[in-house]
Write a protein that binds this DNA or RNA. Structure first.
Length: 504
RNA sequence: GCCGCGUUCGUCUAGUGGCCUAGGACGCCUCCCUCUCACGGAGGAAAUCAUGGGUUCAAAUCCCAUACGCGGUACCA
C-alpha cells in the first residue's frame, strides 16, 4: 500500500489538509505501507516563497513522518511537480495520439461568453467542443501562427464503446456514478506548458505507484475525469476515498473568516501537536465502541500510536464535521496534563521548564522565588504556559493600586471597616510568626485570628488576599503568603492597612 | 441552474433490524470542595434519530420520495 499527501505550496498548511495528511499517514502506517509527500506546484501564479519549507516544518511538528518526499528523497522522485513538467508533456502528447485529448485555441473571452449563454439557458457550463471539430489543416495553421492553446481531455460520448457513465466504489461513499454527458472536457495542459492538477495528479499517482488516493470531498466530482485518464492509459486504477469536509460553526466550509485555519496558528497559540492530531483525527472518524456497554465512557484521548492501531477507512464518516475549538481546548488540556504528569522530575522544576520561555527576563533572577510562585498557579500554568505571566504578574509588582470596591466586597460581606480590622489582625498575628515555609501552619495561625475576630472565613481571607495580590482572582492566601515570604507579605499587608485608614 | 454527496443532543460522536425509555465526550446549568478564579468531584437539562411514505412481528438501522445543507461546475488545487 502506498498513500500520499500532495498539497499546493500556496502558503500555510490548512487544518483540513493536516487531517487529510493524517488519515493517509495512519492508513499507510496501519497497513505497513508507505506514505509519500509530494508538492503540487503546477500553478505558478499561486506559488508562495517559503511555503514548501513551511509545509515540511509543520508536518514534522505534527509528527507525520513520510517515507518519500522532496526533502527525504525516494526512488520515485522528483517529488515536486514543477521538476517533472517534461513528463506530463510526454503523456499529454500520448493522449493526443490516442485521440483522448485535443488542442483548444479558444480565448478566455470566448469561453466566458459561452458560459454566460449556457447559464442563461439553465445549462451546466461545459466546453462546447468548438475546437474538437477543427480540421488538421486548421490546427496546423494555428500552430504555425503560434496561437496559444491548451490540451483538453476528450470525454467519451454517451452510449459509446465505454457505456454511458463512469462508476467507482469509493472507499468512504461506496458506489458513485457520473454520466459522461455531465463531465466537462477538462483542460489537461495549460498554455504555459504546465499541466493542470488533473493530468499531473494522475500521472504522478501512477508513476509513484500510489494505491490509495484519499483526499477531500471537493475532489469527488473530478474523480471520473481521473478514472477516464487511467483507463485510456491502460493503467491500474487506484482506490479512491473522499473525506468529508471540515466546517465552520455555521456549517460552511472551514474558512479563515471564522477563526484560525492554519496549523501554525494553533502551534503559535500553544496547542500541543498531540492535541491537534488527537482532536482532528476524531473529526470525521471514530474507532467505534466495540464492547462498550451502555453508560460506559468511550475513549477520547488517543496517542498517535493508538490511532495507527485503530484506524480504518470504513469508520470514516460521510458527513462534514464542525471544527469546535472548545473541544480542542479540552483535548489540549488533557494532553498538557498527561504529558506533565508523565514527565519525570520535581514539579516546580517542570513548571519552570514549561513557562520560562514566556516569562520576562527579570523574573528569572530569583529562581527559588519564581518556582514557589509557579507552584501556586499550578494547573493554570500547565493548562497554558503562555498565559503564566498574567497569572504571576502580581508577585512581581512593587506596589499596586487597590480599588476600594475590590477589597470591600459586599458579596463577601466585607466593608472597609471589616477589611481594615481583618487585615490588621492578620498582620499583627503574622508579625510574630516565622514559619512561612509551612502553608498548613500559616493556615492554623490565621484561622485562630478569624475565630478571635468572630468573622466568617471569607470576611478575613478575602480582604487579606486582595491586600496581598491586588487581584480579584489569584491563588489562595496561604499559598501567596508562602510564596512571598514573611518580609514581602508584611510589607504588602501594612501598605494596605495604611491605605484603609485613609479611606475610612 | 446542472451534477454529485450528505442529514443521530448546540458541537464531536456510539449505533449495521430486537440489548435504544437512543450511550459517551465537549459546552451549558445545579450542587459539593472553597476566601476568589482555576482544578477536582457528584448530578441535571439537552436528539419525536431531517420530514413523509413503505418493507417487517419489530427500523435510528433496509427501500422510495420530499426538504434542507454542503461540494463541484476555472488555462486553482
Amino acid at each position: 500500500m502506498r498513500t500520499r499527501f500532495p498539497p499546493s505550496p500556496t502558503g500555510f498548511l490548512h487544518v483540513g489538509g493536516l487531517r487529510t495528511a493524517l488519515y493517509n499517514f495512519l492508513l499507510a502506517r496501519k497497513n505497513g505501507g508507505k506514505f509519500i509527500f509530494r508538492i503540487e506546484d503546477t500553478d505558478q501564479k499561486r506559488a508562495v516563497a517559503g511555503a514548501v519549507e513551511n509545509l515540511i516544518e509543520t508536518l514534522k511538528w505534527a509528527g507525520l513522518s513520510y517515507d518519500e518526499g522532496p526533502d527525504v528523497g525516494g526512488q520515485y522522485g522528483p517529488y515536486i511537480q514543477s521538476e517533472r513538467t517534461n513528463l506530463y508533456k510526454k503523456y499529454a502528447e500520448k493522449l493526443v495520439e490516442m485521440g483522448a485529448a485535443y488542442p483548444c485555441f479558444c480565448t478566455a473571452e470566448r469561453l466566458d461568453q459561452m458560459r454566460k449563454e449556457q447559464e442563461q439557458h439553465k445549462m451546466a457550463p461545459k466546453y462546447d467542443r468548438h475546437c474538437l471539430h477543427l480540421s488538421k489543416d486548421e490546427i496546423e495553421k494555428l500552430m504555425t501562427a503560434k496561437t496559444p492553446f491548451v490540451l483538453r481531455q476528450r470525454i467519451p460520448d454517451s452510449g459509446g464503446a465505454h457505456g454511458g457513465s463512469v462508476m467507482w466504489k469509493d472507499l468512504i461513499r461506496s458506489a458513485v456514478t457520473f454520466k459522461y454527458e455531465t463531465i466537462d472536457d477538462q483542460v489537461l495542459l495549460k498554455s504555459d506548458g504546465f499541466p493542470t492538477y488533473h493530468l499531473a495528479n494522475v500521472v504522478d499517482d501512477h508513476l509513484m505507484e500510489i494505491t490509495h488516493v484519499v483526499r477531500g470531498e471537493e475532489w469527488l466530482s473530478s474523480t471520473p475525469k481521473h478514472i477516464l485518464l487511467y483507463k485510456v492509459f491502460g493503467w491500474k486504477i487506484p482506490e479512491f476515498g473522499h473525506l468529508p469536509l471540515l466546517l465552520n460553526k455555521d456549517r460552511s466550509k472551514l474558512s479563515k473568516r471564522q477563526g484560525d485555519v492554519a496549523v501554525e496558528d494553533y502551534r503559535r497559540k500553544g496547542y500541543l501537536p498531540e492535541a491537534v492530531i488527537n482532536f482532528i483525527a476524531l473529526l470525521g472518524w471514530h474507532p467505534g465502541g466495540d464492547g462498550v456497554a451502555k453508560g460506559m465512557a468511550t475513549q477520547e484521548i488517543f496517542t498517535l500510536e493508538e490511532l495507527i492501531q485503530k484506524f480504518s477507512l470504513d469508520k470514516v464518516h460521510k458527513a462534514g464535521a464542525v471544527f469546535d475549538i472548545e473541544k480542542l481546548d479540552w483535548v489540549n488540556w488533557q494532553w498538557r496534563r498527561k504529558k506533565f504528569e508523565e514527565q519525570p522530575g520535581e514539579k516546580s522544576e517542570k513548571l519552570l521548564g514549561l513557562c520560562s520561555e514566556f516569562l520576562p527576563q527579570e523574573w528569572l533572577a530569583d529562581k527559588e522565588f519564581l518556582k514557589r510562585c509557579l507552584i501556586t498557579i499550578g494547573e493554570k500554568a500547565i493548562k497554558n504556559p503562555q498565559e503564566a505571566p498574567e497569572h504571576l504578574g502580581f508577585y512581581f509588582k512593587k506596589s499596586f493600586e487597590i480599588a476600594p470596591e475590590l477589597i470591600a466586597n459586599p458579596k463577601m460581606k466585607v466593608d472597609m471597616e471589616i477589611a481594615k480590622k481583618a487585615v490588621a489582625a492578620v498582620a499583627e498575628s503574622l508579625e510574630s510568626f516565622d514559619n512561612f515555609t509551612d502553608q498548613e501552619a500559616l493556615k492554623i495561625r490565621t484561622m485562630e485570628v478569624i475565630q478571635k475576630l468572630q468573622l466568617k472565613n471569607g470576611q478575613v481571607l478575602w480582604p487579606t488576599r486582595v491586600a496581598l495580590t491586588g487581584e480579584a482572582f489569584s491563588p489562595g492566601v496561604f499559598e501567596v503568603l508562602w510564596a512571598l515570604g514573611k518580609e514581602e507579605s508584611m510589607r504588602r499587608l501594612k501598605a494596605v492597612i495604611a491605605k484603609c485608614k485613609m479611606l475610612l
